[in-house]
Write a protein that binds this DNA or RNA. Structure first.
Lengths: 215, 215
DNA sequence: ACCTGAACACCGTTCAAGT
DNA sequence: ACCTGAACACCGTTCAAGT
């Protein structure tokens, strides 16, 4: 015997074999799977196949499917690209909300996870703290802070959920086929004119409008 | 033989037996199940059990699980208790959003359905049309209408999703155990003072604030 | 003709048997 | 000791056999 078989190298090729399973490797594969074929396709068995192992091997690194999803959510939140702290409340809030929004846009499937499981990741706390501080610095009292926080957060939330589809208006139209112009004239007119409006632009504008009313 | 066995009456008791299955009966049972034990417990097999029949019998009335869920969503939207049309834009918008919000609150599980499947129910169209008309009457041009519509809708959406839990702040705290006061002083202070704030009150206030900025 | 049981191809997870 | 295959109790749905 020339080498230990217990790790790292294939006895036949000598090439560094796919590293032995670890939580990170499992998560990596899970992200790849869900990104390419969606959340429902992320099953323990499929994931095991992707990693070239049996389903039970995964349970060495993850306590079950729920644990896997929680870890994916945690990692997603931790990966948020937060801007440096700004003392200007508007700049601070814009930066934070934009970062959250951008993260959700990169992995839209997370939002449905958040919607059904909640977003109680430890790494969201710094974001919350910074938002509250910005509101405080803007002169909000506690009631105002609570209200403003809820308003901003819920808007971001709703926008994110809606944005992993094509937007409410378009989708309503698509799902319905052609709208009855006689019955819904204003809606039909909107759908006709609004083509090409950028979602992103809409989000940025509305966020500023929200901040106008809050600050 | 004294009576037909094909329908309506039990041959043994003569009492009107549970009516033969129909889409309505299936939906009724599905709502009951999901209301009492949650969305994941709504399986074709469980539903069949609830109705005292075999799983396959359901497929006579519903083309599959997706179809069942879509019908439940449609019915939920159709059951919205819309207020009479008002010519005052603020009153009209307040009434509509409040109605949507109230419907979601009565069956919070629908929101996760909406989040993953979208809300493309035909019965949402009148609501959309009325919202757009109210914005038009308030003097919005098309771009403003699109923006204001998205803002209002996304806020309602996000609020609804969040509200079937205990609210973001509380939940974050609950999920985390005790917050590190040193690390997150503003958050800790908020959590301490905010106890007892009514969600409903917060929603109404924020909606008015939103309308202030939109109208 | 209408209805539905058995069967198929999945799923998450337990548990005991492998090395 | 560490790892994992077989088995269990589910799931939605097909399909052919019942009445």
């Amino acid at each position: 015997m020339t080498g230990q078989r217990t790790n790292a190298r294939s006895p036949t090729t000598g090439k560094p074999r796919a590293a032995r399973l670890s939580v990170d490797r499992v998560l990596e594969a899970a992200f790849a799977r869900v990104r390419s074929t969606g959340l429902p396709s992320l099953t323990m068995r499929q994931l095991a196949d992707d990693l070239g192992t049996g389903p039970m091997t995964l349970y060495r690194h993850v306590s079950g499917r729920d644990d896997l999803l929680r870890r994916m959510l945690d990692r997603t939140v931790a990966e948020m690209d937060l801007p440096p702290v700004s003392l200007d409340p508007r700049e601070e809030l814009t930066g934070l909300v934009t970062a959250v929004h951008a993260r959700f846009r990169r992995d839209p499937w997370v939002v449905t996870l958040v919607a059904s499981e909640g977003l109680s990741s430890p790494d969201i706390l710094p974001v919350v703290e910074r938002m509250l501080n910005a509101l405080k610095n803007a002169g909000c009292n506690h009631d105002e802070m609570a209200a403003a926080y809820a308003l901003i957060w819920h808007y971001t939330y709703g926008e994110a959920i809606d944005s992993h589809r094509d937007g409410e208006l378009d989708r309503v139209a698509a799902g319905m086929g052609d709208i009855d112009v006689g019955e819904y004239p204003t809606l039909a007119e909107m759908l006709c004119r609004r083509r090409g409006t950028q979602r992103r632009h809409l989000f940025e504008g509305n966020l500023q409008r929200l901040l106008d009313s809050v600050l």
